[in-house]
């Protein structure tokens, strides 16, 4: 009898302790992440997001992060979105417009926070379920800097028609090309075969749009650029110093921190529709002097003085 009473007391004590513990100690927050093409830029945003979110969370909070890295074609994106939703996430984090649209297309109540989106206001992603932050790069400036290196009449634009952000940049460049009497040689890269067939010789320089597919072939593209003695410009940072001549980019860490701030608000109960999406604008400018020399162009001293980062 005494034994039964002791067991009963133990169960009662456990229940009381349980009631006193914070809810976070009991529940795990499940975050579904969609990162198309395993892009290095998105990975940097994601790392900063995780670090900031962990730092912002109260002690004892645990996160289960489920990451999907599909190839950015509609079927793969849709399948990845369904897999994430099957895990019944508390929050979905998406990188780039295509991933965000794929997730929003599925029926779900899970809030969506997006990052790494180019010109998000044109993309019109924000709504009752979704908010986040995007970035915009003044492509005119990149063209201006490029023309200080070399006379450019025809520009090879490497993009991927599967990725909305990349297409939006191509469209923006097309408008600028009309104003600036510039001919665009549009090269759609969906796989390595496309790159092998790419008529790069037609152009004077290479413009790398912010595409995960283009980024995945960066080394091969830059080898071809060197063969054709063409400078390259891009809107993602060249962290591995692969050899992009000029990069004008938005700091991915700042984007990661921003989406973590938004995620913390959503996880504490705020509706995504009540959080204004943010456009991050401050950019950084990088010149690769070593690569410029390799392809036979000289970056003017005055231009180098403008740089946030110089690779020698």
């Amino acid at each position: 009898m005494t034994g039964i009473r002791r067991d009963f007391q133990k169960i009662l004590l456990a229940l009381l302790l349980g009631a006193l513990l914070p809810a976070s100690a009991w529940s795990k927050t499940v975050i579904g992440v969609m990162m198309p093409g395993n892009s290095a830029y998105f990975q940097e945003i994601h790392q900063a997001f995780l670090t900031t979110l962990t730092a912002k969370s109260s002690a004892g909070t645990t996160f289960e992060i489920i990451v999907q890295k599909p190839f950015p074609d509609p079927v793969a994106l849709s399948n990845a979105a369904r897999k994430l939703l099957a895990a019944d996430p508390d929050l979905l984090v998406t990188y780039g417009t295509s991933a965000t649209l794929a997730v929003l297309h599925e029926k779900s109540h899970a809030p969506v926070i997006y990052g790494g989106v180019y010109d998000q206001f044109t993309a019109q992603l924000a709504g009752p379920r979704a908010t986040g932050c995007g970035f915009k790069i003044p492509l005119t400036s990149l063209l201006r800097h490029l023309r200080e290196l070399k006379k450019v009449e025809t520009l090879n634009v490497l993009y991927c028609s599967l990725e909305e952000d990349s297409v939006r940049q191509l469209n923006e460049l097309s408008e600028l090309a009309k104003e600036q009497q510039l001919t665009l040689n549009r090269i759609n890269l969906k796989n390595r075969e496309d790159l092998k067939k790419a008529p790069l010789a037609k152009g004077d320089a290479i413009f790398l749009t912010g595409s995960s597919v283009v980024a995945a072939m960066l080394d091969e593209i830059l080898a071809l650029a060197k063969n054709h003695q063409q400078p390259s410009v891009g809107i993602f940072p060249d962290r591995d110093e692969a050899g992009i001549t000029i990069a004008l980019y938005h700091d991915p860490l700042a984007q990661g921190r921003k989406i973590a701030e938004i995620a913390a608000q959503v996880l504490s109960g705020r509706a995504p529709g009540d959080i204004k999406p943010e456009a991050l604008r401050n950019t950084e400018l990088m010149f690769n002097l070593k690569e410029a020399k390799n392809i036979g162009v000289k970056i003017p001293f005055q231009l180098v003085a403008e740089a946030s980062k110089v690779i020698k």
């Binding site: 003044p138 400036s141 401050n282 400018l285 003085a305 946030s308």
Partner: peptide
């Protein structure tokens, strides 16, 4: 002065 103009054109400053 020219660099200040360039900084805003690039988006390095608002």
């Amino acid at each position: 002065h020219a660099s200040a103009i360039s900084a805003v054109l690039d988006g390095r400053a608002d």
